[in-house]
């Protein structure tokens, strides 16, 4: 089997197992839309963010935060559960000769597809709910996809390190909430700390796309670096747990 067809088989298998669950499709639509709206209402209760220097209006900041939160958190939780629930099957596939790295790539590629769907729903909701016009919906979509991809990789990493759903969920919840608070601008945060927040880059891309329709290219490199670092760690953790001693009948 060629590398490409192996990837295609892996992506198809994991995509089918996700999209064949109708509830998953409902959640993909409902959760981002609800989150964006709730963030808008929540920020509306603050009469002023006097100590903050927000680049956009309060409403825009709120809904952008809701969109990045929903896209990231959903992709992260999906990444986590996809890895945990498929662990035994992946191990078996690996024994049958499917290299662990290829399997991980297939899982990640599926999550990229799902992230595109979530980002699409979030973009449409954002465009529909924002009181001001969105300058570039395409770049908003790209920024949200970036957040989704980062979190998908984070979910995979957490799932590879903590293979039980309870422990994995605890870790992901705390990491995601901390990251989102830092990126959201609800508290003033030291600048050097903000640079460590994965969501802050996507947040900035989306904010610039909403306000002036530009693609914040300066944010892309650090964001992709984060994906690469998380990916490297995930490969180490995943192959360590899934790679068999004997694969496809051949001793490794």
């Amino acid at each position: 089997m060629s590398l490409l067809s192996r990837y295609a088989a892996g992506i198809r298998a994991s995509a089918l197992s996700f999209f064949r669950e109708p509830l998953n499709l409902v959640l993909l639509v409902v959760l981002p839309a609800a989150s964006i709206q709730i963030f808008g209402v929540a920020y509306g209760q603050f009469p002023e963010f006097g100590f903050l220097n927000l680049p956009a209006s309060l409403d825009a900041t709120a809904r952008i935060t809701g969109a990045t939160f929903a896209t990231g958190a959903l992709a992260g939780v999906l990444g986590l559960f996809q890895l945990i629930s498929a662990r035994d099957a992946d191990h078996r596939l690996s024994i049958c000769g499917f290299p662990a790295l290829d399997l991980l790539v297939a899982r990640f590629a599926t999550l990229v597809v799902i992230s595109l769907v979530i980002a699409g729903v979030s973009t449409l909701t954002l465009v529909g709910l924002l009181s001001e016009p969105v300058a570039s919906p395409l770049f908003v979509f790209m920024g949200l996809t970036l957040v989704g991809v980062i979190y998908a990789m984070l979910g995979i990493l957490v799932g590879a390190v903590l293979p039980r759903a309870l422990e994995g969920s605890l870790a992901l919840v705390i990491l995601a909430d901390m990251d989102n608070v830092i990126a959201s601008g609800i508290f003033p945060i030291q600048d050097r700390i903000t640079q460590l927040s994965p969501t802050s880059y996507g947040h900035e891309v989306v904010t610039r796309a909403v306000l002036d329709g530009e693609l914040a290219t300066g944010e892309l490199l650090p964001a992709l670096t984060i994906v690469a670092v998380l990916g490297g760690l995930a490969i180490l953790a995943y192959t360590h747990t899934v790679e068999p001693i004997v694969s496809g009948g051949v001793v490794q």
Binding site: L23, N24, L27, L31, S35, I38, F39, A42, Y43, Q45, F69, A73, L74, V77, L78, F81, A165, S169, L172, V173, A176, D177, N180, V181, I186
Partner: peptide, 19 residues
């Protein structure tokens, strides 16, 4: 479901108490 449950618990205490 487990997916929706974790998402809600990730979201709900945060927006409730922090916002």
């Amino acid at each position: 479901s487990r997916l929706a449950g974790v998402y809600v618990m990730l979201f709900f205490p945060y927006v409730d108490m922090l916002l």
